[in-house]
Amino acid sequence: MIICAEDLTFAYNDSLMALQNISFEISAGECVALTGHNGSGKSTLVKHLNGLLKPTKGRILVANKDTATSRTAELASQVALLFQNPDDQICKQTVWDEVCFGPQNLGYDKKKTTTLVQEALALFELTSFEKKNPHDFGYSERKRIAMASIVAMDTPILVFDEPTAGLDSYEMSLLINTLKKLQSENKTVLVISHDMDFVAENILRAISLSAGKKVFDGKLRDLFEQTDLMTESGLLHPQTMQLSKACGLYSSPLSTDECVAAIAEQLGQPSLPNA
């Protein structure tokens, strides 16, 4: 297990119990969605992975290292974390320097750094921006710069806190291609997202939090079957499932093709393969 949380509990200074007795395991190469309502503890949880926060009780092991006793700099070679707000992350004056920051700090040589940075910039279509100041761009470009920065670190584990927020559909396709590439490289990926259509189509396993407690861990499709849990977690079904429910269908389609097939069947037509 590359990530292992045991009875993880965390309270902020203002005594709010942000996480309570959370246990889960994630194997190397898995891609997992972390879902839950606003304020459920998702961001607090992922900040434990690279030791930015230390558990009040319990522990979390990342690549067999206890994050409570490891330095964040040490954990950074294992876990790259995308902050929810790119402005919490961006600290350099050019896009190139910003994306170099991670690999340089991990001690990669110049040649490796250059290759990784070029690849990451290309993934998010930022190559032509490399000499520009990140702060001169809009929110979604800053977000892409922040995402490229963590991909360039080439760590075994990548954590994306709300990568889809504020992206348009084209930028979303760049993110989806990146996630596919990371999975093909056997990276372990944890994605916080509220976008159920994005999650349904790209990720198989979900861990869901509600008010600091783990309320679900399993196949995303099984989460969607549990309406009470969906409500408790602040979630709504993907559009294809909402349509299937509204039409009185029993199936739970997660893609356009599955949805068309189910409706065609109900309308008394054979479910023809998509033309």
């Binding site: 309502h37 606003n38 509220h194 602040g234 979630l235 709504l236």
Partner: peptide, 8 residues
């Protein structure tokens, strides 16, 4: 942008 689906 940052709201959960029910919140949105």
């Amino acid at each position: 942008t940052f709201l959960d689906p029910q919140g949105a």
